[in-house]
Design a protein around this nucleic acid. Structure first.
Lengths: 106, 106
DNA sequence: CTCACTCATAACCAATGGGTTATCGTTTCT
DNA sequence: AGAAACGATAACCCATTGGTTATGAGTGAG
């Protein structure tokens, strides 16, 4: 199921969680690597990842005893839709970016 | 002071508050008009407006005993920047892949 | 086989936050 | 002047949530 703008805003509202997502936008990482930099405990990181996954923002890949997470940038589409709708005059400038993300979904 | 992406995400994470902002994006409205549709009490609406104003998302204009609020769409800029940056990260990952493929080409 | 590592879950706690009712200061209307 | 409308604030309540520690399940290494 497609995440709503509501899901995305809620998932990204927390700074710690958003920081995790930002890191995952750069590279796929296992939980312990994320924990090192997150400034919170490993269970806290796992909980954040759960929320991000629920929102469709990240994907997990089991590899032995590690779980690698990566960002699903295409999931940002509803956020872009919402913003575009709000700021109608920027619509044209956004269409390009939106297309890009949608085409690269998953 | 300029609101951060953090402020914006937090301000827009609540559905009721976001709905208020969406209405104000269409037209300037006094508090009581917003209250009619918000589904919550007038003080609740006032609190939401306070948060939105703090984030720079709305502007208020006193007129007699009414206070008219309107959306400041330009305040969404940091949100757009953030999203663009995320897309940019993705782009750079893609560039890396391209590099890799090119180097492997010969 | 045993020990260490990785991660998810459970149980719990404190802070935050969105809601309420009550009230007060302004402003408008009669 | 008195009453009613409007909106902000205060005081309070309860659900949510982000954090913790403890633990268990699964996997890799010695």
């Amino acid at each position: 199921m497609q995440a709503t703008a509501d899901d995305l805003f809620r998932a990204l509202a927390d700074p710690t969680r958003r920081a995790i997502f930002e890191r995952l936008a750069l590279e796929e990482l296992p939980v312990h690597a994320l924990t090192e930099r997150a400034g919170v405990s490993q269970p806290a990181v796992s909980k954040h990842l759960r929320v991000l996954k629920q929102a469709g923002l990240v994907r997990d890949r089991r590899a032995g005893r590690q779980t690698h997470y990566s960002a699903q940038l295409g999931a940002l589409a509803p956020l872009i839709d919402w913003t575009s709708q709000m700021a109608g005059f920027w619509q044209s400038r956004f269409d390009h970016l939106e297309d890009l993300l949608k085409r690269m979904d998953q």
